[in-house]
Design a binder for these strands. Structure first.
Lengths: 341, 341
DNA sequence: CTAATTTACGAAATCGATTTCGTAATCTGA
DNA sequence: TCAGATTACGAAATCGATTTCGTAAATTAG
């Protein structure tokens, strides 16, 4: 049986109240008594029961991390995200509880809120799932502080941490333009991927800024992330009368796939064609050539999400907390000067 | 304010005991009453308070996952491990609480045990840290069920889940032998990496089985995982009078490093030299050529660790639970026939 | 020196569930 | 029909902490 506060109070011939107050730094305890208590804590090895404390205090110092990602496919995203989060949380004496089976299950989220087993929730929900606004409303109804990541919401009122993909796509496109490229292909994803709009805006913006006309035949929308589509898109790009000299892919895996397709067809990268990805996954650094891409400060996003959630919990601000982080252009070997000039 | 069991009992003009019993499937409740209760639960949206429940039941249905890894360096290990664990845990109505800042801090582990905020602990502690046996003793003293991973202990009495690296190294070596290699290099790590002994045993065993004499000059022990050492080792291997025609590296990153060193020196892989890694990290699949390696069933290990822990918690067996899982040889492009024959 | 204040502590309520035990009411069997 | 068993429920204790409030004793002020 673990040592309880009652054991302590018996041992010391003090009341439980006094012991509790001594341990919680209350002022109505003499310093002599406080020291006696602390000594006894050491000797008996007392540690307050988390359950009893939670019940009385009506908080748990735990944060829920609801992950609705296929882990393996975003391995290095999560592997960067989670330690950042855990570190910040643990510094604030909070811990992270993982929930991975809540996809599309409002009821479970509701139960989680009502059971009060966490003080706040971080929702790592992939883009493309649209029910998130309803979800946020649900948690708000249950008075459960929450932060979405990595998502942006035009709806006011929802707290989130996300990356600035307009800026990212713009920087990437500008990089290619500065290398002399004028016909720059862009393979995007369906609009359900909400970042698609942002990245396309960045791409189009950079072209506009450089005075390059937007050519719709250079923009192909893949139906899904299935490699099959990308292979077809890649062929479509190259079979055009005036094919692009550089192609931007929506994600690194798509770009990496393109690298192997190019190799099969003896297209040299970057001499014949420049290729860029997006996201800065680990694998993008070890391909041959290494991929020019855009890296998100994932770890920072994680940290910021937890910091924001802690603020929502502890300070209860009226306004939501919304962060859009800059991303970083990572120039590597897969992009080079335009061969046509 | 959330709905409590008291609200329910008031609403229904029943005692709290009866409501509780109805919800927990006790037999001394009439089915009519039970239905009334369930209906009211739905209407009022009642969800029991986790804290109250934990306090009364003296368990939390939470498992601690104490991770003492640098996440980024083992990104895909953890990204495979964690979802497997979470899935099994959640099927059993448990959740995972993450603890990442407990390295070398016995006191924190002790507090964790005594606060009873988890029912059991999985310790994902990297090899090379030796204090684990003391740690296990400490948890045992606190009556806290626990499982280590991915570690093996010759000390009886400690539960663990690990991979069979003797078999893995043996399979890898046999593969090279079957390709005609006779002089096979092996770069190992310091003995603090406890798997080093296993892998070396597998390597030596395969040689013995094939009747190949063990040549100590073909076995180099790197002082650490620092790339600097591997570069030197690689040179040492190749500058020998009769250099190896194939080299086994202790980990994939070491092998990948060797791939680029080889490229620098215009050594063709696998025509001039075969190279194999170990662990089957994601990056090993995208190098040029892709790496022959040994893959661990990481996800299975995670699942098994949780299953074992749940057994320890719920069935309180006297004996520890110990699992050593087979590993899988993954043959890819970096190994080929011995060019010297 | 007395009154007002401060200090240091304890009794008891409380958080929200579960569980034990006691007991009317109903049912069963001979 | 009546003792004994069964059914269905409630009162109260309990888990282990925190917090409110009351109050002797000690201190300060006038």
């Amino acid at each position: 049986m673990p040592v309880t506060i009652k054991d302590l109070s018996n041992e010391l011939s003090l009341s439980r109240s006094t012991v509790s107050k001594a341990l919680n730094g209350r002022s109505d305890v003499s310093s002599a008594t406080r020291e006696r208590v602390l000594r006894a804590v050491d000797e008996l090895g007392y540690q307050p029961s988390a359950a009893a404390r939670n019940l009385r205090r009506q908080r748990t110092e735990k944060l829920g991390l609801v992950v609705n990602y296929p882990f393996q496919r975003v391995a290095d995203f999560l592997a960067e995200l989670i330690p950042g989060m855990a570190a910040v949380a643990e510094d604030a004496e909070y811990n992270l509880i993982l929930y991975t089976s809540m996809a599309g299950n409002e009821q479970r989220i509701k139960s989680l809120c009502r059971s009060r087993e966490v003080d706040g929730i971080i929702v790592a929900w992939p883009p493309g799932s649209s029910e998130t606004v309803a979800l946020s409303q649900l948690m708000a109804d249950e008075q459960m502080p929450h932060v979405f990541l990595p998502r942006r919401f035009s709806n006011a009122g929802i707290s989130f941490v996300a990356a600035d993909h307009v800026q990212g796509a713009r920087a990437l496109t500008q990089h290619l333009i500065s290398l002399g490229h004028r016909r720059i292909g862009f393979e995007r994803l369906p609009e359900v991927y909400e970042t698609d709009g942002d990245r396309h805006a960045g791409y189009a913006g950079a072209l506009r800024d450089a005075g390059i006309a937007y050519d719709p035949s250079l923009v192909i929308s893949a139906k899904s992330t299935d490699p099959h589509y990308h292979t077809r898109s890649f062929r479509t790009f190259l079979s055009q009368p005036a094919p692009p000299t550089a192609i931007l892919f929506f994600t690194d895996p798509m770009a990496i796939n393109a690298l192997s397709l190019a190799k099969e067809q003896s297209i040299r990268i970057p001499q014949d064609l420049s290729i860029a990805g997006y996201d800065g996954i680990l694998a993008s650094g070890v391909t041959e050539p290494a991929l020019t891409t855009v890296g998100q400060a994932v770890s920072d996003m994680g940290r910021l999400a937890v910091e924001s959630l802690l603020q929502l919990i502890e300070e209860q601000p009226r306004a939501p907390i919304q962060h859009t982080l800059p991303v970083e252009l990572i120039v590597r070997g897969s992009t080079g000067p335009n061969p046509k000039i």
